[in-house]
Design a protein around this nucleic acid. Structure first.
Length: 591
DNA sequence: GTGAAGGGCCAC
DNA sequence: AAACGTGGCCCTTCAC
C-alpha cells in the first residue's frame, strides 16, 4: 500500500491542500486573477439534502487547490461564495448542475459564469450515437488521457487517503485543457451561441431541482384509491368476459389470462372471434362495438393511471423537503428539449384531477405560463409564409383561420370537422406527416387525405416550400440547425429509402422543435435572474410551459415577470410575428 | 435474478 | 412495408 501512494505521488504534479482560512485567502487571491478556473466538488453522496460537501477543488494552469470543507468553515466563507457568484473568472465544471446543487444547498451560492464540459461535449457530438459524455470518456476523446474514476464513489466523509486527494486534484486539473479543446470545436461548428445558452441554463436547472415541486399527498392518495377500485372492478368483469376464451386456452395448459399482457389479450380476443391486429388503443377502438373491447379500453386507461401515476409518485416525496425533486436532463433530446425522470413531471396526465394534486403549499401559489402555438409561430417566421403570418397577426383562432383558408369559406362558417382537419394538418405536417398518416389520424381515405394536404399547401405555399427544403437540406448536408445554431447530425445509409425519408422528417421537425427548446431555455435564464432576490422559483418546465411557485403576496409581480421574460425570449428568435404567452395564477397546476 | 427489447401510453 | 417528431414509465417476454 505505501508503495502505491509513493509511486502516485511521484507521478503527478503537486497540489495545495487548503485546511484553514488563511490558506483559503491565498488560494482565492490566486484564483481571482485568472480568466478561467477549473471547479469540482467531492461529496459524501449524490443527494444534496442528505449529503455533505467534503472537498472543493480549483485549478489554474499552474496550481491545484483542494479545499477540505471538513477542516474549517470554507463553505461559510463569503470570499469563496463571492467568487462562485461572480461571472468571472469563468468556472469550468463537468456537469455543473450537480456541483451547483451542492454549492447552493451547502454554501447558499448561486453559481455564475459556468463553462460545462459535459454539456459542451453533448453539443459538439450533436447527437452522435454511442458517444458517452462522462468526464472519463470526454477527456479520453479530446485529450487522449485516461482518468481514473475509481475514487468517485469512495467514502469522502472520513480521513482522506492520499489516493483520494490525488484523484480529486487530477479531476479538476483536466478541466482547463479539456475546455481548450472543446472551445476549439465549439468555434469550428458555430456553436458559441447555443453553448452560452446551455451553460447559463445549468445553474437555473440546479435551482429548479433543488426547489422541487409540491404534491398534495392526501389528494394524490384519494385519486389512487378511486383508481384502485375502478381497476379491481374492471379486472373482475373482464375475467368473466374472457372466461370462455380462457377455458379454451386452459386446454393448452393456460388457466389464466394476464390482462396486462398484449399477446395473451390478443390471443383471447381471437378465440372470441374478434380479429384484432395488435391491441393498441387505436386498433381496439375499431372493435369497440364489442362490450369486452370497450371495457378493455377502460381497463387500459385505469391500469396506466394506477401503475405510472399511482402510489409510486408518492415514493418520490423527499423525506427532508416533503417535495418531489425530479431529475431534469438539460439536453434530453438531440433537439435540445429537456427530458425528465424519477419521476417525469413532464408527463403527468393533463386532467384536472391530477393537476389539482400538483399544487403550491399553504400560503404559496403557482404561476403557470405557456407559449401559444410556439412551434407553428416558429414555422411561420422561418418560412415567411404570407398566409400563416397573417393568420397569426390576426390574433384569431389559428386552426379556424387555417380551415377558412383551406376550404375558402368565411371564418364564421368553418365547421367543426373542417377545423379539426386543419388542426391535424397544422400539427402533423411539422412532424413530416404524409397523406397516409393523416388518413390514419382522421380516419379518412388516403385519397381524401391527399386532397386535404393539397388544399393545405395551396393555402400555405411558403410552408410547403420550407418543409420540402428543410427535408432535402437535412438529407443533403446530414445535419440540421435550430435558430440558436444548435447542431443535430444524422448518420444514415443514403441507399436506404426508408431511412432517408426518416431523416427528411427530422429535417422538418428538428429546427422547429429545437428552436422552441432554445426559446424556453433563454426564458428560464432570464426569468431566473428576474426572480432572484424574491422567493419565487421555477419548479417545472414542460417544453413550452413554465411553472413558477411563489408566495401568494407576490403573485401578480411574479406573473408579470414570467410573462415579460418569456415573451422577450420568444422575440429573440421570432421577429416577424407576435409571441403570445398565456399565464394564469392558481393554487394548483390548472389553467 | 438481471437486463434488453418490445408493446403500450402519458406528456408536448 | 411503412405509416408524423421528441421523450420516460410500466409491463411482459425472453435470453443469459
Amino acid at each position: 500500500m505505501p508503495r502505491v501512494i509513493v509511486a502516485s505521488r511521484m507521478s503527478v504534479r503537486p497540489y495545495t491542500l487548503v485546511t484553514d482560512s488563511a490558506a483559503l485567502g491565498d488560494c482565492l487571491e490566486t484564483l481571482r486573477g485568472q480568466p478561467l478556473i477549473g471547479l469540482d466538488t467531492e461529496t459524501t453522496g449524490l443527494d444534496p439534502f442528505t449529503s455533505r460537501v467534503r472537498l472543493v477543488q480549483f485549478s489554474t494552469p499552474g496550481d491545484v487547490f483542494v479545499i477540505d470543507c471538513f477542516a474549517f468553515g470554507a463553505l461559510e466563507d463569503s470570499r469563496l461564495v463571492g467568487l462562485l457568484e461572480l461571472p468571472r473568472p469563468i468556472k469550468i465544471l463537468h456537469n455543473a448542475k450537480f456541483d451547483a446543487r451542492m454549492l447552493e444547498r451547502h454554501a447558499g451560492a448561486r453559481l455564475r459564469g459556468v463553462f460545462d464540459t459535459y454539456l459542451a461535449s453533448q453539443l459538439v457530438e450533436a447527437g452522435a450515437h454511442g458517444q458517452t459524455h462522462s468526464l472519463r470518456a470526454v477527456a479520453e476523446r479530446h485529450l487522449g488521457v485516461a482518468i481514473d474514476k475509481r475514487q468517485q464513489l469512495s467514502d469522502w466523509s472520513g480521513i482522506l487517503s492520499a489516493d483520494q486527494v490525488e484523484y480529486a486534484a487530477a479531476d479538476v486539473r483536466v478541466l482547463l485543457p479539456l475546455r481548450a479543446k472543446l472551445v476549439e470545436k465549439i468555434r469550428e461548428l458555430g456553436l458559441i451561441n447555443v453553448a452560452k445558452i446551455e451553460f447559463d441554463c445549468a445553474p437555473v436547472v440546479a435551482r429548479m431541482e433543488n426547489a422541487g415541486i409540491y404534491i398534495d399527498r392526501v389528494r394524490w392518495e384519494a385519486l389512487c384509491e378511486v383508481t384502485e377500485r375502478a381497476h379491481a372492478i374492471l379486472r373482475d368483469r373482464l375475467m368473466e368476459d374472457f372466461s370462455g376464451a380462457v377455458q379454451q386456452m386452459a386446454l393448452f395448459g393456460k388457466a389464466e389470462i394476464n390482462l396486462d399482457s398484449p399477446t395473451q389479450v390478443q390471443d383471447a380476443l381471437h378465440r372470441l372471434g374478434i380479429p384484432v391486429e395488435g391491441t393498441r388503443a387505436t386498433e381496439l377502438q375499431h372493435f369497440a362495438k364489442h362490450e369486452i373491447v370497450a371495457r378493455l379500453l377502460e381497463y387500459r386507461t385505469v391500469a396506466k393511471q394506477l401503475t405510472s401515476y399511482g402510489r409510486a409518485m408518492l415514493d418520490h416525496i423527499h423525506p427532508v423537503t416533503g417535495r418531489i425533486h425530479p431529475q431534469f436532463i438539460q439536453i434530453g433530446a438531440t433537439s435540445g428539449r429537456f427530458a425528465c425522470m424519477d419521476p417525469s413531471v413532464q408527463q403527468i396526465p393533463n386532467a384536472p384531477e391530477y393537476r389539482d394534486a400538483v399544487r403550491a403549499p399553504e400560503g404559496r401559489t403557482l404561476v403557470v405560463a405557456d407559449y401559444s402555438q410556439i412551434e407553428l409561430r416558429i414555422l411561420a417566421d422561418w418560412s415567411q409564409d404570407t398566409a400563416l403570418m397573417k393568420a397569426f397577426q390576426s390574433g384569431e383562432d389559428l386552426h379556424r383561420v387555417t380551415a377558412s383558408q383551406m376550404f375558402n369559406v368565411p371564418l364564421a362558417d368553418v365547421t367543426k370537422s373542417q377545423r379539426s382537419a386543419a388542426k391535424s394538418l397544422n400539427f402533423g405536417l411539422m412532424y413530416g406527416m404524409g397523406a397516409q398518416g393523416l388518413a390514419m389520424r382522421i380516419e379518412s381515405s388516403v385519397a381524401e387525405a391527399e386532397r386535404l394536404v393539397h388544399k393545405y399547401f395551396s393555402a400555405y405555399r411558403g410552408v410547403e416550400q420550407w418543409l420540402r427544403e428543410a427535408g432535402e437540406q437535412a438529407v443533403r448536408d446530414r445535419e440540421s440547425r435550430t435558430r440558436s445554431g444548435r447542431l443535430v447530425r444524422y448518420e444514415f445509409d443514403d441507399e436506404d429509402r426508408a431511412q432517408t425519408a426518416g431523416i427528411a422528417r427530422l429535417g422538418k421537425n428538428v429546427p422547429i422543435q429545437g428552436t422552441s427548446a432554445d426559446i424556453t431555455k433563454v426564458a428560464m435564464i432570464e426569468l431566473d435572474a428576474a426572480l432572484s432576490g424574491t422567493d419565487a422559483q421555477i419548479v417545472n418546465t414542460i417544453h413550452d410551459e413554465l411553472v413558477v411557485e411563489c408566495d401568494e403576496s407576490i403573485a401578480d409581480a411574479t406573473r408579470d415577470a414570467v410573462e415579460r421574460t418569456m415573451t422577450w425570449a420568444g422575440q429573440q428568435f421570432i421577429r416577424s410575428i407576435p409571441v403570445v404567452v398565456e399565464t394564469s395564477v392558481s393554487v394548483a397546476w390548472n389553467k
